[in-house]
């Protein structure tokens, strides 16, 4: 499956998306594909344009490099995820505080879930209180 044209064109000058010989994106872990899919869905929903997204990604990479990012491609989707988080906060969809709180909830939910069962947010012991 090739990339949506707008996305490929927007990402190219900033940080080209890692792709295989056939042009399809290559992920090195399941969460990367998840972050990728979220971005496509949010764009489709109209939360941001590809141009907007690309300039946010560029900023994110600059910030990471200033903080000592290896800049070898291994952290590509970390920047990508940080970009969606930042855009979601800027658009008033999910504040940093809300994201942090929700991460803790997922962590508690995972710990309360016996190995082998699906991890559901409802399993967070505090959610049931």
């Amino acid at each position: 499956m090739s990339l949506p044209d707008g996305l490929a064109a927007a990402a190219a000058p900033v940080a080209p998306i890692p792709r295989g010989d056939d042009g399809a994106p290559v992920f090195s872990a399941p969460w990367e594909a998840q972050a990728f899919a979220l971005t496509l869905a949010l764009h489709e929903r109209g939360l941001f344009t590809w141009k907007e997204w690309a300039s946010a990604l560029a900023e994110e990479i600059k910030r990471a490099q200033a903080a000592g990012d290896p800049d070898d491609g291994s952290t590509y989707y970390r920047h990508w995820l940080a970009t969606i988080e930042r855009l979601a906060a800027a658009k008033g969809v999910a504040s940093e505080a809300a994201l942090a709180e929700r991460r803790e909830a997922w962590h508690r939910a995972a710990h309360a879930t016996p190995h082998g069962l699906p991890i559901l947010l409802e399993n967070d012991p505090l959610a049931r209180a």
Partner: peptide, 10 residues
């Protein structure tokens, strides 16, 4: 955790 947090809120 970050991806799940983001997705569940969205």
């Amino acid at each position: 955790l970050r991806v799940r947090a983001l997705e569940s809120i969205l």
